[in-house]
């Protein structure tokens, strides 16, 4: 394709081709510290629906090795978001090496805290915030569970900050770590955050899953136990490749569920969430 950018996130390499230069320039600025793969795991394509649509009301179609049949295009101003969506899509549909959980993760002392829940539950913001407060950021979107060892592999892609989370993190980090503010995308306002240098430098170091939380934002502080069967079901729902992995996926997930301490956590604001996380970590982390 006309323009190309390559990046390795955790153990996964991507090749992104584009009909336009700008989204790739934005990507390469934000992913400056990440290595480029020789042979990528996945190819993503950002292309114009018709040749003239490269220039006239340009809209970005998202394609690649794995595609959804009816993915709607995005405006060129949201090209960076399109690239990220394309990369996520490859992971969601094509990843077979690891059990993929839709979860965020941070690490301390070689042990990992996993957070999963519906979008809007705050797992992404919480992981980004913890990443600035003494934890190693391992990823805000996907956690990769090793099918043999059960270890967690980092996938520290750019953090995709949405709406209110943008202000929270603007107060927390240097502005040169933030991408362009994209207003009125299909998901609302979006701004990407470059993970801390250490998170990138150590992204090939796995960690042992030590605590699993189901956070829920916007409720009074509450901490509940969750039954094993419910945890299992919630994690299968949070995984895009559990079924496709067959017995290896079953083995990895059932082992995780039987060994990891788990709690559901409600919190009214991010500061109280950080406090709850620290307390639960001290009490429970294995």
């Amino acid at each position: 394709m006309k323009h190309e950018f390559r990046v390795t996130v955790g153990p996964v390499g991507f090749r992104i081709g584009s009909d336009w230069k700008r989204p790739l320039d934005q990507l390469s600025a934000l992913y400056a510290d990440y290595p480029a793969p020789d042979i990528p795991d996945f190819t993503v394509r950002l292309f114009a629906q018709r040749p003239w649509r490269r220039f006239i009301r340009p809209s970005v179609m998202i394609g690649g090795d794995y595609m959804l049949p009816d993915a709607a295009p995005l405006s060129l101003a949201h090209g960076l978001l399109a690239a990220e969506m394309g990369m996520n899509l490859q992971m969601a549909l094509g990843q077979r090496r690891y059990l993929l959980l839709h979860a965020s993760a941070v690490e301390r002392d070689g042990r990992a805290l996993l957070m999963t829940g519906h979008s809007g539950a705050g797992k992404s913001t919480l992981s980004a915030l913890l990443g600035e407060r003494g934890w190693r950021f391992m990823g805000d979107e996907f956690a990769l569970i090793d099918l043999d060892s059960g270890a967690l592999h980092a996938f520290p892609r750019l953090v995709s900050l949405k709406n209110e989370a943008i202000a929270v993190m603007e107060g927390e980090v240097q502005s040169d770590r933030l991408g362009p503010l994209m207003r009125d995308t299909p998901k609302g306002d979006i701004r990407h955050l470059r993970p801390p240098k250490e998170a990138v430098a150590r992204m090939r170091e796995p960690a042992k899953p030590a605590l699993l939380l189901f956070p829920r934002f916007g409720h009074a502080v509450d901490i509940r136990k969750v039954g094993e069967a419910e945890i299992f079901v919630r994690l299968t729902q949070a995984s895009t490749n559990y079924v496709a992995l067959g017995e290896a996926g079953f083995d990895a997930l059932s082992s995780l569920v039987r060994t990891i301490p788990t709690r559901a956590v409600d919190y009214p604001d991010t500061e109280s969430a950080v406090a709850s996380v620290e307390r639960l970590w001290a009490e429970l982390a294995e």
Binding site: G227, A229, V243, G246, E247, S254
Partner: peptide, 19 residues
């Protein structure tokens, strides 16, 4: 492949790959 989880049986059924 049966795994016991608090009170229920989690079963991976090999011929179908279904849980």
């Amino acid at each position: 492949y049966l795994v016991a989880l608090d009170g229920v049986a989690l079963i991976f059924h090999r011929p179908s790959g279904l849980t």
